[in-house]
């Protein structure tokens, strides 16, 4: 609950902050390089090594990070649910082949392929979404498949089949509503995963490109200025940690609620 509130607060500030602030994220100011954060002044988070306002840049970073994470989670949701539901509902040999494929992919250090992809192609947002989504759909597919499989064997589905309820109606009336809970929980848990991957890529300089930025990119810049300007590291690092922590807590809390409702 608390983590949800904090998240909402961060998002609101991240959207409104740059609009209100007199600075923008591109504007360099060589008279104000590496200024310390001040609570009273106009530079709440100080400035970076190019004299850009760190508050605005950090808020932009939060925006980009969360947008990338949510879109990537939706990508993984769509692929994962469709793949898992088909494998689980069709079952038999189709299921075996489909899941063997997932197992194979599971065994790969996927992130290296993403890096390879990033190296080989021009980096753009779309590619990042797809790449991150492509990593995270595996978990979703496995969970949805497992749930579907067990739902399909449940007696109320069998009763519906016997009576002559159509497959479509079975899927929408009997299977989907019972999948919803677990899907929501795992989407919440996928978002921090996606944030991790995105910020990892940006940290390595393989993700979002300058002058656009994300929290990972800001941490990277902070590491380079660590000894002289520790705020450049600590502020984006702290923000990233808080956002991740909040999503993880939220996901955990939702899983507890879900588990309590479904003791099986």
């Amino acid at each position: 609950m608390v983590s949800g509130g904090i998240l909402a607060g961060i998002v609101v500030v991240a959207i409104l902050g740059p609009l209100i602030s007199p600075h923008d994220y591109l504007q360099t100011n060589f008279d104000a390089l590496l200024q310390r954060p001040t609570l009273s002044g106009a530079r709440l988070f100080g400035t970076d090594d190019l004299g850009r306002d760190l508050f605005v840049r950090a808020m932009l970073g939060v925006q980009v990070t969360i947008v990338v994470a949510i879109v990537a989670s939706i990508v993984s949701l769509v692929i994962g649910v469709a793949y898992g539901a088909i494998a689980g509902y069709v079952g038999g040999r189709v299921d075996a082949v489909m899941m063997r494929f997932v197992d194979t992919l599971y065994a790969l250090p996927f992130i290296f392929f993403v890096i390879l992809l990033m190296v080989a192609f021009e980096r753009n947002f779309l590619l990042i979404f797809v790449a991150i989504g492509a990593i995270n759909w595996l978990d979703m597919a496995r969970i949805v498949r497992g749930q579907t499989l067990s739902l399909r064997e449940r007696e109320f589905v069998e009763a519906a089949r016997l009576t002559g309820v159509s497959t479509l109606r079975i899927i929408f009336r009997h299977i989907a509503p019972n999948l919803l809970g677990v899907v929501i929980v795992y989407v919440t848990l996928t978002i921090p995963q996606a944030i991790l991957v995105e910020s990892f890529l940006s940290f390595l300089g393989l993700g979002i490109q300058e002058p656009q930025t994300s929290l990972g990119g800001l941490v990277d810049a902070g590491v380079n200025q660590m000894e002289g300007a520790s705020w450049m590291l600590l502020i984006p690092a702290g923000l990233l940690a808080i956002v991740l922590l909040c999503f993880n807590f939220l996901g955990d809390a939702m899983r507890d609620v879900f588990d309590a409702r479904n003791p099986r």
């Binding site: 007696e155 109320f156 009763a159 016997l162 009336r173 009997h174 509503p177 019972n178």
Partner: peptide, 20 residues
């Protein structure tokens, strides 16, 4: 035919959709 043949299961809880 399908309406003519009906089934009642062992586990009463499992045979009813928990969401309905």
């Amino acid at each position: 035919v399908r309406r003519g043949l009906q089934l009642v299961f062992q586990d009463p809880a499992g045979s009813l959709n928990p969401q309905m």
